[in-house]
Simulated assay, not measured.
Amino acid sequence: MGGFGPLETAGPVLVWTVVLTFVFLECALIIGLFLPGDSMLITAGVVLASQVSGEVHVWALSVGTMIAAIAGNQVGYVIGQRTGHHLVARKNGKYINTRNLTRVAELLHRHGFMAVLVARWIPWVRTLCPAVAGAAGMDHRKYTIASSIGAIIWAPVLLLIGYYAGSFLENVSWLMPAVIGTLIVGLVLGTIVGVRQYRAEMARPAEDFDLDEAEQEPVADSPWRRA
């Protein structure tokens, strides 16, 4: 397979570093709300398709992303758990506002296990879900099983979609560099814009969000436990 300039020289190490860092942050910390996680995984898959040992790396990286996502989910859960039933929202925030936190809390309260699985495919919910689950006291074992299953499905699927799409593009010699270049430029710009949006969001005044007020009446087979 052909290379792509600096990417060929840097090798898969750069891809590994970026992917694992982004996946962990998106699953663990609020800044992950503003990072292009899904597009990053697809881009990484396409880039690995241009590498000589790309197939080995994409399957190994799939395992690595699963571990990073699972670890990130656990960190996010613990952070939420330590806040108690009170989370910090941002007044007039785009994402970290009381409306979105309420929506995630209600989703988890009503659907529990399945909500954690579905959250994996909704970027802003994916990041808020661990903290809200921890703060609200969702059963840790159920949360861990659901979030781990979601991680196993989410990251490898997007990586492999990018990889096999890239393998197809390799048959068109002039197209592969153009696609990779476009994807990387989009990823870099998306990250820059995301970091600026994160800084603007965090600069907004903080307000308390009380999960006790957001939760609805318990439903059958509720995943919540009370201290």
Rank of each mutant, 00 (worst) to 15 (best):
I70W: 05
Q51S: 06
V58T: 04
M66S: 10
I42P: 00
G54H: 06
A44I: 05
Y95K: 07
V56R: 14
N73W: 02
R110V: 03
V58P: 00
A105K: 01
H85R: 15
I67F: 13
V58S: 04
I70N: 00
H57P: 00
H109N: 15
V52K: 04
V63Y: 06
V56T: 13
E55C: 04
V88D: 15
L33C: 15
S62K: 13
L61E: 11
Y95P: 00
N100R: 14
R99G: 04
A69Q: 05
A71Y: 01
A71T: 11
V88C: 15
A68D: 10
S53H: 15
I70F: 08
L61T: 05
H86L: 15
K91L: 07
E55R: 14
R110A: 03
T43P: 11
V47E: 02
L41C: 14
R103A: 03
R110H: 07
Q51I: 06
G80M: 13
T102F: 02
L61G: 04
T43S: 12
T43W: 04
H85F: 15
L101G: 00
N97V: 06
H57E: 03
Q81Y: 12
I79W: 09
P36I: 10
L61P: 01
T83W: 11
V46M: 03
R82K: 12
D38I: 13
L35R: 09
R99F: 08
G84C: 13
A49C: 10
N97Q: 10
V75A: 15
G84S: 15
A49P: 01
G80Y: 12
T65M: 12
S62N: 06
V56D: 13
L33S: 08
I67W: 09
G32A: 12
M40G: 10
L107V: 01
L101T: 01
R103P: 00
A49I: 04
L108Q: 08
T98R: 14
A69P: 01
N73Y: 14
W59T: 03
A89K: 03
H111M: 07
I79E: 12
R90C: 13
G112I: 05
V88Q: 15
L101E: 01
R103Y: 03
S62L: 07
A44W: 01
H111C: 07
L41T: 01
